[in-house]
């Protein structure tokens, strides 16, 4: 407003968007705008794109211990999950989640035979697995409303690795990268 009334003065000259973004004027709209930005950030980073840090080695080498991630929740909301997708599984809430890979869906049968993952009787091609493992697990079916998830790091004994079927509604989202 003021800029057009007093053209030519450096004080009120139009400022580019970068200057307006990082050094906004302290006028009467500053506080409402600040609160609005804080509210949007809270909603976005609290419910849509949740920041997280990988803690543990079960998804190595895909995700190293300490890797910074962002859990993209719309991936789970709109039901576009596919086999091979890495997902974050919530526990009591979203502050602590499990990072795993989907290997089978409801109605399918999962088994491990000499370290090979077998889904519906066929060995699943898993290019993300870089080490050999010797797991053996009898076939088990995935019930309706569930998915079967496993970590990428299978170097430890099967009993020490947390994996298995989980309710589809527990999947919060997928890491952005």
């Amino acid at each position: 407003m003021d800029e057009t009334k007093q053209p030519g003065t450096t004080k009120n000259a139009p400022r580019n968007w970068l200057a307006r973004l990082f050094a906004p004027r302290l006028n009467q709209w500053f506080l409402p705008r600040l609160l609005l930005v804080a509210l949007c950030a809270y909603g976005f980073f609290g419910y849509v794109c949740i920041p997280a840090v990988a803690n543990g080695k079960s998804m190595e080498p895909t995700y190293l211990d300490g890797a910074v991630l962002f859990c993209w929740c719309p991936k789970a909301w709109f039901g576009t999950l596919e086999r091979g997708d890495v997902v974050m599984v919530r526990m009591a809430g979203t502050k602590v989640m499990l990072l795993k890979r989907i290997v089978a869906f409801a109605g399918e049968t999962v088994a491990f035979e000499q370290g090979k993952l077998v889904v519906d009787g066929k060995v699943l091609d898993e290019p993300y697995i870089t080490t050999d493992c010797n797991w053996d697990l009898p076939p088990r079916s995935v019930p309706p409303g569930h998915v079967y998830v496993v970590g990428d790091n299978r170097t430890m004994p099967e009993k020490q690795h947390v994996f298995g079927k989980t309710a589809r509604k527990r999947i919060v989202g997928s890491p952005l990268w």
């Binding site: 526990m91 009591a92 809430g93 979203t94 502050k95 602590v96």
Partner: peptide, 21 residues
């Protein structure tokens, strides 16, 4: 203990769910 949620079914009794690490 993370994500603590509390529910009351009957008076003077409650249940709490949380992630324990």
């Amino acid at each position: 203990c993370h994500d603590i949620s509390v529910a009351h079914e009957v008076p003077d009794e409650a249940s709490a769910t949380f992630t324990a690490r």
